[in-house]
């Protein structure tokens, strides 16, 4: 077999509306970029933060 360059590309009509240029994305902070992706990322902080802190104390 040979190297196949013509792999299926993302359909232009379906992706045009949602494609944000990498240059534009790189202007955002890492927190901004990943904050909205929390469902997709492994929770690195799981178990590290005490939760359910007593409401009537700080």
């Amino acid at each position: 077999m040979v190297a196949v360059l013509e792999v299926k590309t993302v359909d232009e009509t379906e992706s045009r509306a949602v494609r944000v240029p990498l240059g534009e994305l790189s202007a955002l902070s890492a927190e901004e970029l990943t904050g909205a992706l929390h469902r997709a990322l492994p929770d690195a902080q799981a178990g590290r933060v005490p939760v359910a802190a007593f409401n009537s104390a700080i």
């Binding site: 904050g35 929390h38 929770d43 902080q45 933060v49 802190a53």
Partner: peptide
């Protein structure tokens, strides 16, 4: 809002 745990009951 980022899917992490809350900090208070």
């Amino acid at each position: 809002l980022r899917g992490q745990s809350g900090l208070t009951e």
